[in-house]
Design a protein around this nucleic acid. Structure first.
Lengths: 241, 241
DNA sequence: GAGTGGTCTAGACCACCCT
DNA sequence: GGGTGGTCTAGACCACTCC
């Protein structure tokens, strides 16, 4: 080592050499990488420099460290979701070749945090709030926080925790009539960090949404977050003009 | 200090206390924060722990450090781009209230890197490659890499470097007839790190695209990347079904 | 008990910017 | 020259997992 490849920093050179080995398929995802101590010895750098490189590779979604076990190559399996929203029910998902499931996290009543989305006109009063984790083939792919503007019966609320929102609304005679979406990237929220076991600052894809329904007093606001390596969105556009 | 608020780590407690002060508007964006050394003294932690907290806040887009000058609050000014692609020319941009400009970075001939986007059918042979930086009100907001499948005259190539691609194609009798988009998040690429002065691992919003034109042999593939705090996309959807 | 990653420390050197 | 952030080092302790 001591090559100082790209920039100038030692930890960058170490990081890139490890990244190169990962990309070349040198490591079995089931088997831990050589320990930080042995890598430090091999590269002839201090332990803490190697740890710095390994930590940055975690932030980049390339590695995954488990205390007491070791550091592993992070397996990539990303789901592509089409924004035309054909995927609105469990059946749609299964038709696309994976088995979805929903894990209800909490149902509360609270105010929606201002996400500085001037794009959506978010009410300031407390609303019903449903948080859930959506999994595909038992792999968590998105964390969803939804706020409902209108009080609903318990049985309907339960449906929000077990179905996609589109489906739950349609099943209760209030189909979605319009959708406003805002897509951005953001560092993983504390909830995402927890549920996906990703470090602070991990890039996440965020979709903030507003559903209007046939009932003018019933709207749904929400935000779906996914670690960048778990979900991407596609969209086809007609010609401009 | 020594509170160990959220998780357990000291650097997290320091990070969150500094973040709290930033959010509360305690610091003038023009004036550097107290130095890492003085913060370490105030919090009664080691210098390196404070530096760790400051570095993580940089990765989160909250702070910005300039060697020799100090650490500053990162000013937030984000542009919202509507995915309906109404923004396809300089005029459109001006109509939306900002002054766009384009800075040509390079024109080369090279193979397109495989971005593991199975979504787009990317040719494997070398293509014309145009890299440019798009600015809004003199603030860089996106880094664009475009690959053109067909050899073009020099004058047309020059237009790609100074106009939005939609406009350049329309002006040369090959209007875009269909667009395929893939949106995801990703850690900032080396080019983005360089042009936007963001650290390794900084979350970025990425739009990979494929333009088809009226000329079947002329397609444009590309990827536009923006640091997460610079750009977001909105979209309105009609009712499903 | 041995190995792992995560954290914290003190101390040092460098490049950079300002006066 | 004196301040700043960035990097690198050696050494230590902890919680965790596995045997």
């Amino acid at each position: 080592m001591r090559a100082r490849k790209s920039g100038n920093a030692l930890h960058e050179a170490v990081r890139e050499e490890i990244a190169r080995r990962v990309q070349s398929g040198e490591f079995d995802p089931e088997v831990p990488l050589p320990s930080a101590a042995s890598l430090a010895e091999e590269f002839n750098v201090s332990l803490i420099t190697t740890k710095r490189a390994l930590r940055d590779l975690q932030s980049a979604g390339i590695l995954r460290s488990v205390p007491g076990l070791g550091t592993f190559v992070r397996e990539q399996r990303r789901f592509i979701r089409n924004l035309d929203l054909s995927l609105t029910s469990m059946d749609d998902a299964r038709r696309l070749g994976f088995t979805p499931s929903i894990q209800l996290i909490s149902i509360t009543r609270e105010k929606m945090k201002d996400l500085s989305f001037d794009v959506l006109s978010i009410p300031s009063e407390p609303m019903l709030c449903v948080r859930k984790l959506v999994l595909a083939d038992d792999i968590p792919i998105m964390f969803d926080t939804a706020f409902i503007t209108k009080p609903l019966s318990d049985s309907v609320v339960d449906e929000f925790g077990t179905k996609f929102i589109y489906q739950a609304l349609a099943d209760n005679d209030s189909p979605v009539t319009a959708t406003r979406l805002m897509i951005d990237a953001a560092p993983a929220s504390p909830e995402v960090q927890q549920h996906f076991a990703v470090p602070n600052g991990y890039p996440a894809l965020r979709r903030a949404y507003e559903f209007k329904t046939s009932d003018p007093s019933l709207k749904v606001f929400g935000c779906a977050e996914s670690p960048f390596d778990r979900l991407a969105c596609t969209f086809d556009l007609p010609p401009a003009d």
